[in-house]
């Protein structure tokens, strides 16, 4: 794909702010409105805002080609299709099975398998076929090297974790655990193929380098997030500890106790038939 942007008489920084960063901010803001508001119109406006933000971010390679950040918008546009196929497919498979509520027809299971399978094949085609996200001919989107190894590696880690959890904490969940081991094994297989077999644009050595970088990235994200959560907990704990103890009230007087017992006597028992 050869990206040719629109021409504007505008400062590049301002262009990036208006056409990339504000749309990026619109997505969480819209989601916040749609999830936290009680009013239906605010919810609908929030959803529209988030949708508009996603569309504008996807269009950023054309609207702000001078900004390197717009490559992330390009990647979003490239992977949103297969990702939606996978998620909708898994939803159809899950809810066409034995669920108590929201059960879908049995025929949806095949459609779900087909959709999620096509999604995975589409993503694999981005590595080993001609579907690789390219900013210009033969120039692979740099963020593809971030997304793909992180996604596959974490899927295999989480699937393996889920398989062991089902085996150890679950009751008679061997079949389900085996399914998760298969998913983990398939993900590891894709990683091993990736680090040993070149794609038309993605070389095995380059993928290998980015795989280790993805591990460093995930470790960094885990450490940074845990640190901020710990500090948040510490701030709340310190504040709550500094609060004065709640004022205790005086014990009831004998006249108050008499009044309570009188009220209780009047409301207990009932009339005999």
């Amino acid at each position: 794909m050869n990206i040719q942007g629109f021409e504007y008489d505008m400062d590049e920084m301002l262009q990036a702010l208006l056409l990339f960063w504000i749309p990026v901010a619109m997505v969480p803001l819209g989601l916040w409105f749609s999830l936290s508001s009680q009013s239906k119109s605010t919810m609908a406006n929030g959803r529209f805002l988030a949708f508009l933000g996603i569309i504008m971010v996807c269009l950023s390679p054309w609207s702000v080609p001078s900004s390197p950040s717009s490559a992330a918008g390009h990647l979003l546009g490239a992977v949103i299709g297969p990702c939606m196929l996978i998620i909708i497919g898994i939803y159809l498979i899950s809810f066409s099975g034995n669920v108590a509520v929201g059960k879908l027809p049995r025929s949806d299971r095949r459609l779900g398998v087909l959709m999620s399978g096509s999604g995975f094949v589409w993503l694999a085609g981005m590595h080993w076929w001609i579907l690789t996200p390219q900013l210009s001919p033969d120039v692979v989107n740099p963020y593809w090297y971030v997304f793909w190894p992180t996604f596959i590696l974490l899927t295999s880690c989480l699937a393996s974790c889920s398989a062991v959890t089902l085996l150890t904490l679950g009751d008679r969940r061997r079949a389900e655990s085996n399914a998760m081991f298969i998913l983990s094994g398939l993900s590891i297989l894709i990683l091993l193929l990736g680090i040993n077999i070149d794609g038309p644009l993605v070389e095995a050595n380059e993928f290998r380098e980015h795989l280790w970088l993805a591990i460093a990235d995930m470790a960094g994200i885990a450490v940074g997030s845990l640190l901020s959560i710990l500090i948040f907990a510490f701030v709340i704990y310190t504040y709550e500890r500094s609060l004065p103890p709640p004022k205790s009230i005086h014990p009831p007087t004998s006249s108050e106790l008499d009044q309570v017992s009188k009220l209780l006597r009047n409301h207990l028992g009932g009339e005999e038939e």
């Binding site: 898994i90 939803y91 899927t155």
Partner: peptide
């Protein structure tokens, strides 16, 4: 990946 792992676990159970 969290969506995929949770979703596949749930569909394996159902």
């Amino acid at each position: 990946s969290v969506c995929v792992a949770l979703g596949v676990t749930f569909s394996a159970i159902t």
